[in-house]
């Protein structure tokens, strides 16, 4: 176990090293940060001075060496835009992103498991077919489009009136089609509960939660159908297996077969995929946060790119790399718990 963790720690270092080299190598293509920092009428001499001051004229190796030496001491540089250490900027933005990811994960877990299992047990029922076709639509629609549609429907409201307004039934049908709006359309709102450090939470008040709903739903909109389909497929396969048939023959109740024997084995691949997807979800937050002006890391990253805020971009990429390594490590640990025959260190059993 400890050997495994040490090995993973080494992985993390290698991953972050590679990411930092790559992101440093592409920085010349990210644009000129000076352009973003000065007004249009600032003369070239002044710009050159600032460029020199920031050390942008040094060679790649010198710049990288300086960065790496500082980074080893935990100093990842100053954000050009926020005028603060990049780690502090990220610390401030991280909680918002994590809350969004947690909320989306909750939605996914709560809905995907029962729906997936149901669709596997009753593959031919009308409801299953409905879930399957809706999930295809969910996978196909890009996150930002889902987000904009959600805003239009539930924040602004839509007034449809294809049915005659004079009649009672027409009014009722129109009412069903139209939406009121009223959900908050952007940001995290003002009712945040302070937890600790830079962490203000949306989870502890009703008002805070309303701000979380639309962004979390749109972030979940891609992964949820994916997991429903995954769980269904795995479950179907497990239900065909010998031991399930044997258990049925033994006369064990169906409920027990489904939820104890079959589901447990279904979850193994789901956990693996889930771990990888959790990292991907952090990446998807870039889109969701941009549309909802959610003040998290994704929005911060996108703006950093627009401002050529190179130190912040490099730090963000490294931290996301770290998140990937950590989630994968956790997945492997959980895997070991679910299936004790798996050996973490990879030695032959």
């Amino acid at each position: 176990m400890i050997a495994f963790l040490i090995k993973r720690l080494m992985h993390a270092f290698v991953v972050m090293f590679v990411i930092s080299v790559i992101s440093f190598a592409i920085q010349s293509n990210l644009g000129d940060p000076i352009q973003q920092m000065v007004g249009q009428s600032v003369p070239e001499s002044q710009r050159a001075e600032l460029r020199e001051e920031l050390g942008l004229n040094d060679s790649f190796l010198v710049q990288y060496g300086r960065f790496a030496a500082n980074a080893l001491q935990g100093d990842f540089g100053y954000s050009y835009f926020f005028n603060e250490p990049t780690t502090e900027v990220i610390q401030r933005h991280l909680p918002a992103t994590l809350e969004l990811v947690i909320a989306a994960t909750l939605i996914i877990v709560v809905f995907s498991v029962p729906i997936g299992v149901y669709c596997a047990i009753r593959p031919r029922s009308a409801l299953s077919r409905f879930f399957m076709s809706v999930s295809i639509i969910g996978i196909s629609i890009p996150v930002f489009l889902t987000a904009i549609m959600l805003i239009q429907l539930f924040a602004i409201g839509v007034d449809f009136s294809p049915f005659p307004v004079e009649t009672g039934w027409g009014q009722w049908l129109n009412g069903v089609l139209s939406t009121e709006g009223g959900m908050p359309s952007y940001g995290r709102g003002n009712n945040l509960t302070h937890l600790f450090g830079t962490w203000d939470s949306n989870f502890f008040s009703l008002d805070g939660l309303t701000y979380l709903v639309l962004p979390a739903v749109s972030l979940a909109s891609i992964m949820l159908p994916l997991f429903i389909r995954l769980i269904r497929a795995e479950m179907l396969e497990v239900l065909q297996s010998e031991y399930v048939k044997f258990a049925t023959a033994k006369g064990i109740s169906l409920k027990r077969i489904y939820f104890v024997h079959a589901l447990k084995n279904t979850m193994l691949p789901v956990i693996t995929v889930g771990g990888v997807q959790l990292g991907t979800m952090v990446a998807y937050t870039i889109l969701t946060e941009t549309v909802f002006q959610w003040p998290g890391m994704g929005l911060m990253f996108l703006e950093a790119i627009q401002r050529s805020d190179i130190p912040l971009i490099v730090t963000y990429l490294m931290i996301v790399g770290l998140i990937f390594v950590v989630t994968n490590t956790l997945v492997d640990l959980i895997y070991g718990l679910v299936n004790p025959t798996v050996k973490l260190t990879g030695k032959p059993a």
Partner: peptide
């Protein structure tokens, strides 16, 4: 920053 979101807001 996002145009569509600003208008929606």
């Amino acid at each position: 920053g996002e145009n569509a979101t600003r208008v929606s807001a």
